[in-house]
Design a protein around this nucleic acid. Structure first.
Lengths: 159, 159
DNA sequence: TATTGTTATACTCTATAACTATA
DNA sequence: TATAGTTATAGAGTATAACAATA
């Protein structure tokens, strides 16, 4: 199909994305991608991905929680959580313990190695956050945090 | 492997994610996910995904740009852009025009239908942005925008 | 019947190597 | 030789259906 105006076959010297830049959602996504990329690098030395780090933190902070509870907290489908828990268990960072009162569920608990790795990773993550957000003034940071919370609240029950 | 403390086999009544909530990056990701989910719903009636909408906007605003330029602007690998351009071309929203001076490259141009769809979608996207960010005060919104820009700048050349 | 964990599967998004045709 | 577009492919991440064991 021919375009409905004269075809422009000369390439622009500079591509303009002004219209997209005007969207706060676009800026939000770019900022989120930037932070996630930096976080991924931060966690790499610990052989953790963002999703395995999140799972490990939640198990450390909530000893005995079930896979269903963990999946709900992470907003991940149960089948997808299985491989994550498999990996953490294989690395002996957490254990799957049978619950005597309900033999369907596993109680997840962090091992000493798991808690240690979690501590080390958290220290690196704090440095990562300081690197990215530390150059903002305290007030700017808290306004950013409030603004983000507001956005999350607009869409209830979103991950 | 046995955990290194007494195993807790009682499930917590409430799962705490306080430690993750304390991270600005975590909040940023949740906010971004929430906005993207809402944007996806917003674009669905136009049969556009976020990535096809982005491509369409850039072609409309930069007539004649090449696929390489578009890929660079979107921070998408060239091979992955092919299917996006294929789809927009098949739907006769854009055209691939041969460039006489360099027969390797295609100049991308929006059709009238493409520009019309882009206009309609933009109107819906503006409403979506108003729905999510409109309840913030003007000053809060601009502080959020500045904070996000700052974050993006910390990681140069990030999508 | 309903729930927990699991398997299998599929679909999207993304990343890389290698090809073709042009320059 | 280098570049634009393409093909094939592989890896994440995510979603659904269906099953076994248990309640």
């Amino acid at each position: 199909m021919k375009p409905d105006t004269a075809s422009d076959t000369s390439q622009p010297a500079q591509v303009s994305d002004d219209r997209l830049r005007g969207l706060l959602g676009y800026r939000l996504r770019r900022a989120s991608n930037a932070v996630q990329a930096d976080l991924a690098e931060t966690l790499k030395p610990f052989d953790l991905r963002m999703i395995t780090y999140t799972a490990l933190v939640l198990v450390v902070d909530n000893p005995g929680l079930s896979q269903s509870q963990l999946a709900a907290a992470m907003d991940v489908e149960r089948p997808n959580l299985v491989v994550i828990v498999d990996e953490l268990e294989r690395r002996e960072l957490i254990t799957r313990d049978r619950v005597p009162t309900d033999r369907r569920t596993y109680a997840l608990n962090a091992t000493l190695a798991g808690r240690r790795l979690c501590d080390q990773a958290e220290s690196a993550v704090r440095q990562h956050e300081a690197r990215i957000f530390g150059t903002l003034l305290e007030e700017e940071r808290s306004l950013l945090a409030r603004g983000l919370l507001h956005v999350i609240a607009q869409r209830t029950g979103e991950s």
